[in-house]
């Protein structure tokens, strides 16, 4: 079986290398990409979409379909992690033993056989393997996280003018929440941003992207042709394309943010949502 696999890999690799020989040479001025595609984007992007950053315009407007399905791939990655790893509580032994910690005094109590304390500010529920979060790390992260999130919003919103956009900004936003989960513990992070909310946000992000495209379809234009939004946004069609790019970038950002946190939560706790790592 291994030998068959090896043969398939070698044959496929040889075919790919053989096909790569037909590619135009690096920076060949006669290649199709350099003869009409790149010059078209470089010359026309500004007057057609009023977006100075050509990469953003190509990514979210000229090749909007490609980016939409990239977002869908990210969404499916999060969903697959959830389905493969998440262990729901019903499968575990029931009733379970719960641990609570009195926040002010640090006294820990253990409740057996499914007893629970109603949620309050005095007691926080902790895991059996709970370790006290370090004060220095907690404080350092508390200072840094708001600025990281602010920068992430800047990267999303400023994708039109500088390197950035939904994917990068969403990753930075997700990383700030993951930093919070590392510096405190997973249970605290999940209390702030529940599993349900993450799942919904993940789907909402993709829906914003696809919904923007469908809205264009409803307004008698092609799918993802943002110039159709001119009437709704009360701007001319060229500015509408720029605004449409911003709308889908926000959708991408939300989807990437939620997927990052979802994957981290599931992998770090092996699907149990207890003390991570």
């Amino acid at each position: 079986m291994k030998i068959i696999g090896l043969i398939i890999v070698v044959v496929t690799g040889a075919l790919l290398i053989y096909a790569a020989a037909d590619f135009p040479a690096w920076s060949d001025p006669a290649s199709p990409a350099s003869t009409y595609l790149s010059p078209y984007f470089i010359e026309k992007t500004m007057e057609e979409t009023s977006v100075p950053n050509i990469v953003t315009a190509v990514l979210a407007d000229y090749r909007g379909f490609d980016t939409m399905f990239e977002t869908t791939v990210i969404f499916s990655a999060g969903v697959v992690c959830f389905f493969l790893l998440r262990i729901s509580r019903r499968e575990e032994e029931e009733p379970e033993t719960r641990y609570y910690r009195h926040v002010l005094t640090g006294v820990t109590i253990q409740l057996k056989e499914g007893y629970k304390i109603p949620p309050s500010a005095d007691f926080e529920r902790i895991d059996a393997v709970w370790t006290p979060p370090d004060l220095i790390i907690k404080t350092g992260c508390r200072i840094l996280i708001p600025f990281i999130q602010l920068f992430a919003l800047y990267v999303i919103a400023h994708g039109h003018h500088s390197p950035g956009g939904g994917f990068q900004g969403g990753v930075i936003l997700g990383a700030s929440v993951i930093l919070f989960a590392i510096s405190h513990d997973l249970r605290t992070a999940v209390r702030r941003m529940s599993e349900k909310l993450i799942g919904i946000l993940c789907a909402v992000g993709v829906s914003i992207y696809a919904g923007t495209g469908a809205l264009c379809l409803l307004l008698k234009q092609n799918f993802l042709d943002y110039s159709a939004l001119a009437g709704v946004l009360h701007v001319d069609p060229i500015t509408a394309r720029s605004h449409g790019i911003l709308m889908v970038e926000i959708g991408v950002g939300i989807a990437v943010l939620a997927t990052m946190i979802w994957i981290y939560n599931n992998i770090s706790s092996a699907g149990r949502y207890r003390q991570g790592l």
């Binding site: 370790t131 370090d134 220095i136 790390i137 350092g140 992260c141 200072i143 840094l144």
Partner: peptide, 20 residues
């Protein structure tokens, strides 16, 4: 400023993990 805050905190975190 970011490096000045983040790098010593990260080092402390790694040492802390080693001790634990």
């Amino acid at each position: 400023v970011f490096i000045f805050l983040a790098s010593p905190t990260a080092t402390h975190g790694i040492v802390d993990a080693g001790v634990r």
